[in-house]
Write a protein that binds this DNA or RNA. Structure first.
Lengths: 189, 189
DNA sequence: GACGGCCGTTCCGTAAACGGAACGGACGCA
DNA sequence: TGCGTCCGTTCCGTTTACGGAACGGCCGTC
């Protein structure tokens, strides 16, 4: 189901296939730390862990413990989620979609994605099964999305919904990357 | 900002204040495993880890390694995010809101939450600053939410938006818990 | 009611993540 | 130019998470 969604027909910028399953947590931690303008030593001290541990974590030479990650992310004031980056990413296409949550009840499955579309890119996805709907809320940029022959447009803060049982597209219009959340709703067929 | 949002005036079911920072990952893993109807031994074998390791993880007697968590969640087919639950959870209220993502650009901050409201519960939140808007997509249950004096209603698959610069409420109507995604949009003041 | 199969837990030796200390490098200053 | 301070990395002994094997418990079957 996950891979039915968005995988096909990207028209630009196939990004380097990074290893699923080994997200670079270290790089993210380092970036978060730098953003806050604090040194490795200082963060280690505040988090109550060794400098060696933090150094190894950031450089990816250690395989950190959950406890260690908690100590660090808590001190940085971010959810673990953010540091882990998380989730299977659909790749090799114009659109990057990171799966954040799956919710299932007896009748419906929902998948919630964090969506990034590089400026100027367009992606076409084939029709889903009947009854599948998509809901997008745009964070930034201008998005054109929906049925291929009649796409809708939304800017930051706006929301789109369409039935995705027809071929549909996602485009980032203008000079800005599009960031959005995408919810796909699959009724049990 | 995070704690301005939802913290106040819960009217029911203050949940036992579990430790932030030590979410019971083990319980979640165990639940996910049971849902799939597979045994501990089987999951350990598939994930390529020891039974002892998985047993310790589920019972919370070990402090698992990131690598171990990856192996298990990948095998369960869920994003790590889901197993960790995690992120700062706003508690002691009717609503449980788990922060999944924060997105900032020059003009706006977005916070994306996974929302759970127990059946029959109601929660009131005070007004936010002017310009703040909220966007909810309902996964399951029936939600009544929006300005306190004129709430809107949405069922599974539907979407609500309102300006949250007035006091607003969230209610789970009927016998079913409400699951939803909540996006809060904060323009730079 | 003995037996085999599978369950989840416990035991145990090994590998590795941990924190503290030592290290070399970069910078500011007398 | 020598000295003090702080940076991030490396070294090293200790702690602990790891997987394999052994264990007791619970059911089927014969």
């Amino acid at each position: 189901m996950l891979h039915d969604s968005l995988m096909d027909s990207g028209t630009q910028s196939p990004r380097p296939a990074q290893d699923i399953g080994t997200p670079d947590v270290g790089q993210r931690i380092r970036r978060l730390r730098k953003e806050r303008g604090i040194s490795l030593s200082e963060l280690a001290r505040r988090a109550g862990i060794g400098k060696a541990t933090l150094s190894g974590l950031e450089n990816g030479t250690r395989n950190p413990t959950l406890e260690t990650l908690w100590a660090v992310t808590a001190q940085l004031g971010v959810p673990l989620t953010l540091a882990l980056g998380t989730g299977p990413t659909i790749q090799g296409t114009a659109v990057e979609a990171v799966l954040l949550q799956v919710f299932e009840d007896e009748a419906v499955t929902y998948e919630l994605y964090r969506l990034t579309i590089p400026a100027g890119s367009t992606q076409v996805s084939p029709a889903h099964h009947e009854g599948v709907t998509e809901h997008i809320t745009v964070f930034a940029g201008v998005l054109s999305a929906g049925p291929q022959d009649a796409p809708l447009r939304a800017g930051a803060g706006e929301h789109l919904t369409w039935r995705s049982d027809v071929p549909h597209i996602y485009s980032a219009i203008g000079a800005q990357d599009v960031h959005a959340s995408l919810l796909i709703r699959y009724p049990r067929h």
